[in-house]
């Protein structure tokens, strides 16, 4: 299939996803709900289910998928390593710890309209990066492999801290953290969608703007520098962009694994490794993938919902393996 055709297929898939998934679910809903988005009455169950449950979920899952997938693309290019994602590098761990600490301390404030919990997540993410970067700079060992291993160690460090906090929490907070650690898209509402949106959109915008630099960085720092890229500067900006996205998503949805590592690889196998194409396609594919996972999570079981993280791994794992072993060698 030609590149352009593939891209059009992906766009059509995205449109289908957005327009079809809200109609899927235990209760079948008529198209007439489209006419009353903000005027539903208390007895208008269909409209409440559609506009207050399914649509916010769709939007939140799509946004989270976009952000997590982009985080993976950026880190894989910067570290030139297939395993690099915000999760393996400790950024997600740092953000999660920020949120858990916030819950434990029971604080509540916001700055310039950004909730304290988002700031705590952002703080955790930035702290983990500073820690990693600081260690790398101090030791003078800046090979991608060292950074990756350092990131993995930081990630484990933060997960232990989260476990420690959880051990010390009372039952209520502990429930809240468990719920959120399972990947919590179920409570999505318009407010949470708008809360995540600027984080993902800003991060996405920055990454889209730096696509050329990503291409060069994914080859080597020297080549990037020789082509006029301010390697350190671009790295810092990209780290910041990923922290923004990851912190925004983790605050609301919890750490949803697997999308960040799988979506970029799938796109790389299908669309090639040029970041001019890879960034927008992984962005769309990440959104589509997580939306379908969430739709499955809420429709498969009758009495309750499966955490979305389980579906991402169950659904994505075999598909990814199939792609990898069938087409992987070429790349």
């Amino acid at each position: 299939m030609k590149g352009n055709v593939k891209i059009w297929c992906l766009i059509i898939l995205a449109l289908v996803t957005v327009f079809v998934t809200p109609w899927l679910g235990e209760r079948s809903i008529g198209f007439d709900v489209l006419a009353r988005p903000f005027t539903m009455g208390v007895d208008d169950l269909d409209a409440v289910i559609f506009w207050q449950i399914r649509v916010p979920r769709l939007l939140l899952a799509f946004l989270a998928g976009v952000g997590l997938s982009l985080g993976g693309v950026v880190f894989q290019a910067m570290f030139r390593n297939a395993l690099a994602t915000p999760f393996t590098l400790g950024v997600a761990g740092g953000a999660s710890f920020g949120v858990a600490l916030w819950v434990q301390l029971g604080l509540s404030f916001s700055i310039l309209g950004i909730g304290g919990i988002s700031l705590a997540a952002m703080g955790g993410a930035v702290f983990s990066i500073l820690l990693l970067y600081g260690l790398v700079r101090a030791s003078g060992k800046s090979s991608p492999m060292t950074m990756l291993l350092g990131g993995v160690a930081i990630s484990f460090f933060f997960s232990s801290l989260i476990m420690l906090l959880q051990y010390l929490m009372d039952i209520g907070d502990s429930f809240r953290v468990i719920h959120w650690l399972m990947g919590d898209i179920g409570r999505a509402n318009l407010d949470s969608v708008l809360q995540v949106f600027p984080f993902v959109a800003s991060g996405g915008l920055i990454v889209m703007y730096l696509r050329r630099e990503l291409n060069l960085l994914s080859v080597s720092d020297e080549i990037a520098a020789s082509r006029g890229v301010n390697v350190d500067g671009v790295r810092v900006v990209l780290f910041f962009a990923v922290s923004l996205m990851v912190a925004g998503i983790i605050t609301v949805c919890g750490p949803i694994g697997f999308v960040g590592i799988m979506a970029p690889h799938m796109c790389r196998l299908v669309f090639g490794a040029n970041h001019r194409v890879l960034v927008p396609t992984s962005l769309i594919f990440g959104g589509v993938f997580l939306t379908w996972c969430d739709t499955l999570a809420r429709t498969v079981s009758v009495s309750s919902e499966i955490p979305v993280g389980i579906v991402t791994a169950l659904l994505g794992g075999p598909f990814f393996l199939w792609l990898l072993f069938k087409h992987g060698e070429r790349h």
Binding site: E26, R27, I49, I53, F175, S304, E305
Partner: peptide, 16 residues
């Protein structure tokens, strides 16, 4: 009818 666990709730089922 079961509508969820301790922390996960099927809100759609709940509305129904």
């Amino acid at each position: 009818p079961k509508i969820g666990g301790m922390v996960d709730v099927d809100f759609e089922q709940m509305l129904i």
